[in-house]
Design a protein around this nucleic acid. Structure first.
Lengths: 251, 251
DNA sequence: ACGGTGCCTATTGTCTACAGTAGAGCGGTC
DNA sequence: GACCGCTCTACTGTAGACAATAGGCACCGT
């Protein structure tokens, strides 16, 4: 049996330095597989194979799979195993609307920032984004962009909100993964400028202005080309997609 | 070993008729224990004892515990077991703000109701509420009140939103459980009338009016007497509590 | 008498093994 | 030749056993 290397940090708990549990290890690893496209939506995942691949046994793997199902990345059908969650256009609608709502709630609750040290996290993330943009490292840029948005949400000091937001981000990444082929995303400069502007407004302390900027901000990135790939359309979703298109047209 | 009777319905999945998995059984059972106060916050839960009590083995029990931890009802500390989540005033703040936000988002997305058959679920829940009110059955009333609010959220057709809302409701129930001693909740008539009014506004199709009603509506029930019982105060929470008090004073 | 250290027990984390079921492939029958 | 039923296999669901750790307790030293 190959030794599980325990390289990734623990999911949530545990004092630093302690080896993360195999459940966390498996959850992180499977997340990466899903988000990198190693596991394709619709493809059936069998526990024996995956447990052998990860070098762990089935019980901790099963716990990890349950968690990921709860996070919305996997789909578990009783007695029929798990598959990567196949996303419909309606799912994209749900993810997008929830994300916007979370961000706006966070701004409403947190934006005249009460504890200035929280801004530090935003600033650091933004700097890393800009550095990645200069280096042309798209992967790092994306990663830090997620962290930046999370840090904005975290300004609210709302742990549940931040947690829910992080979970949703994973599903956004899933959307982007599905679009990777079609994705031509290189406007680093413009994006970095928009994020910088966002942070400026936050520091200025005007929630309304931040929300307005967020509405325009909305990353169309993960929407481009998605409708050709997805089935399960509903009218509400299509109508909504048109609306989003219109709103973000003048970027 | 007592046979697990599998009486409660499955958590989420599975075609009807199939016996729910032991994981779902355990999760439901533990939820009930927590929400009925059988398990007290801070009290340590040991897996062997609980597995014997439920008549199942530890692996499915552990999966259930992980799920409940994710739902925010339990707190898992590595190598130190699980306890019922102890709620601080800040947690109540988080739950309350999220709940309001979820409801308002659902109304914004769903209230000019597109698919009228969804209203049926609201009407049924409301009728059951009113019946329970007439019978003076507080437990049933509370249960159907939760279902009514869920059905309102479900008008949006937003599965993720509904799911998140249900999870949050459990934590609201936990709040109420902690307050049960101090709770004197008997204004069935007034509450029923308010819920009826809410549904009328929904059917009228005016999202703004519904949101306004919801703001006034806000169940103070689970807030009464909570601050005396809870530690971990932060300024934001106390300030917010005062605000809520003021807003809902004129009920 | 008090503090430190080592052992010991109970509990968590993990693994291997067993039972039951769903799907696939094959053969039989109409 | 096509359709239905059976068997057989592989996987999921569950159980019980093993390993490792943390907290408690007693004993020893000062």
């Amino acid at each position: 049996m190959s030794s599980p290397v325990h390289d990734t940090g623990a999911g949530t708990p545990g004092p630093p330095g302690t080896p993360p549990s195999l459940v966390d290890y498996a959850a992180n690893e499977i997340r990466r597989m899903v988000l990198r496209g190693t596991l394709v939506p619709g493809e059936r995942i069998t526990e024996p194979q995956l447990s052998q691949q990860l070098g762990i046994s089935r019980p901790p793997l099963r716990e990890a799979l349950r968690l990921l199902e709860r996070e919305g990345l996997l789909l578990q059908q009783p007695r029929r195993g798990v598959t990567v969650m196949p996303l419909t256009l309606h799912d994209v609608y749900e993810i997008f609307t929830l994300r916007r709502d979370y961000e706006e709630l966070a701004v409403a609750l947190g934006v005249p920032v009460r504890e200035p040290e929280r801004l530090q996290r935003c600033r650091v993330a933004l700097q890393l984004m800009e550095r990645a943009a200069r280096a042309g490292d798209e992967v790092a840029w994306s990663e830090h962009a997620f962290e930046f948005h999370t840090s904005i949400v975290a300004l609210s000091g709302h742990r549940r909100l931040e947690r829910a937001y992080r979970s949703l981000q994973l599903q956004m990444e899933l959307c982007m993964t599905m679009n990777r082929q079609a994705r031509v995303h290189e406007d680093f400069r413009g994006d970095a400028a928009r994020h910088r502007r966002l942070l400026d407004l936050v520091e200025a302390g005007d929630p309304g202005a931040v929300v307005a900027e967020l509405r325009v901000h909305g990353d169309r990135t993960f929407l481009d080309g998605i409708e050709v790939r997805l089935g399960g359309h509903t009218e509400v979703s299509l109508a909504w997609l048109e609306q989003v298109r219109a709103e973000t047209a003048h970027r």
